[in-house]
Amino acid sequence: MFNRRAKGQHYEAAAEKHLSACGLVLIERNFHTKSGELDLIMRDGPTTVFVEVRYRNSQTYGHAAETVTHHKAQKLYKAANIWLMKQGKSIYSTDIRFDVVAIHRQGQQVEWIKNAITQG
């Protein structure tokens, strides 16, 4: 039905709609760096939230959130740090978190996992 990029944009829009309904405010979408891409950057009160959107048609081979590997998390940290530096902020002096929105069953199941990715 969709090519890979169109499918990604479709489910990122669904995630944005879900998070906006929960009170988050969009700052930016699809921020690209050499390190990687941040799907959504949102504000939750005073907190800047970097959101990784993951989609799986079924959970037969695992949950969509399980596809965020340690390597992917490291790329997200680097991209977030670059974004923050461009805003004149530091990753150490700004209230931030990394969330995952896992989507299954053609968007019928949306799960928001706060603070899903932690540095370690």
Rank of each mutant, 00 (worst) to 15 (best):
A116L: 10
Q74L: 12
A79R: 00
K78S: 02
V110H: 04
E111K: 08
P46V: 13
S35H: 10
R56S: 03
L76F: 08
W83A: 04
D44V: 02
A6N: 14
E52G: 10
E16H: 01
A80Y: 04
L19G: 02
I103K: 00
D95L: 14
V53E: 10
S20V: 05
H71P: 05
G107Q: 02
R97F: 06
G107S: 10
Y11D: 10
H71Q: 15
A21C: 03
V68I: 15
V49L: 04
H10I: 14
E52S: 14
T33R: 00
V100N: 12
S35E: 13
L40W: 03
E52W: 08
I91C: 08
T94P: 03
I96D: 03
H63D: 11
D44K: 05
Y92A: 09
V110Q: 02
A73H: 00
L76R: 04
V53M: 09
R56A: 09
H32G: 01
S93I: 00
Q9G: 11
M85K: 15
N57F: 12
F50I: 01
G45N: 03
N30D: 13
T118Q: 15
V110K: 01
W83P: 03
H32L: 06
K75F: 05
L19C: 03
R5Q: 14
D95T: 13
V68S: 13
G8R: 08
K86M: 08
Q74D: 14
D99C: 09
Y55H: 13
I41D: 10
D99K: 05
I103S: 00
K86H: 09
K86L: 12
D95K: 13
L24R: 06
S58V: 14
T33M: 02
S20E: 12
A73R: 03
L19P: 00
G120W: 07
I96F: 04
R56H: 05
G107H: 02
T47G: 07
N81Q: 13
F31I: 02
T94L: 04
V51T: 09
Q59Y: 12
G36C: 03
N81F: 05
